[in-house]
């Protein structure tokens, strides 16, 4: 069992700072996230971004849910280190790190033991697990799709049949509760937009336990090509 991936929880965002973890998430877990860090050499450009990797809440929740990752509360971690044992060990470590500072690399002042104490309990992601967004994310991820944010097409997610660097997306995704109403004008708008960009509008919802065989119902909407 490899060590869990550390996801830093900073001001409501889920970030990954370890490049090996980023590679593992993409190659082994079909989670691509979004690189959001500017490059120190060329801070003005935004075409190519680097670490950290930002995860959608659903991605972080799924990783924790499957035991692949843990979420670290960076605020708590910070407070913990500075309040620790009064012997200025954290300050000493900062001073020591800064004295040898040659590049703009953030000095590592935390110890693994510090980090474990700031781990958020698994219950911190519980509210995410109950949303239709998470359920549709889990459903498509379980079928091998990569998902990315869907805002560019007015949906919750875009679903790719493989790595987004190699494939175009197939679906504009919207997760719904079983009996949640949506306007047919949404179906028309999203269906026409999706067809125009060679995608389908995919909607899905978790089926309540009981009579039916499958536990998740999904549908794809496309313009009929006439009318």
């Amino acid at each position: 069992m490899p060590a869990p991936v550390d996801i830093s929880y900073v001001d409501g965002e889920y970030l990954v700072f370890d490049i090996d973890a980023v590679k593992a998430l993409r190659n082994e877990h079909h989670i691509s996230g979004i690189l959001v860090g500017t490059l120190p050499q060329v801070p003005q450009q935004s075409v190519f971004l680097g670490l950290p990797l930002q995860l959608m809440p659903e991605e972080a929740a799924l990783l924790v849910h499957f035991g692949v990752a843990r979420v670290l509360d960076e605020q708590a971690s910070h407070d913990l280190i500075l309040s620790e044992d009064g012997d200025d060990s954290a300050k000493d470590r900062i001073t020591a790190a800064e004295s040898g500072l040659q590049t703009f690399v953030t000095p590592a002042v935390t110890q693994p033991s510090d980090r474990a104490e700031a781990t958020l309990p698994e219950s911190s992601i519980a509210p995410i697990l109950d949303t239709p967004r998470f359920q549709v994310y889990k459903y498509l991820h379980g079928k091998g799709f990569f998902l990315s944010p869907g805002l560019r097409f007015g949906s919750q997610f875009l679903a790719y049949p493989g790595d987004p660097l190699r494939y175009h997306s197939h679906y504009l995704v919207r997760g719904l509760a079983w009996d949640e109403d949506f306007a047919l004008l949404d179906l028309i708008g999203s269906g026409r937009l999706g067809t125009g960009v060679k995608k389908a509008w995919m909607i899905g919802g978790r089926v309540p336990a009981g009579a039916r065989r499958e536990d998740y119902a999904s549908f794809c909407v496309e313009w009929a090509g006439f009318g």
Binding site: S218, F219, C220, V221, W223
Partner: peptide, 9 residues
């Protein structure tokens, strides 16, 4: 206007 609704993916 006419739209296809397909069952499943």
């Amino acid at each position: 206007v006419y739209y296809f609704v397909h069952k499943g993916l």
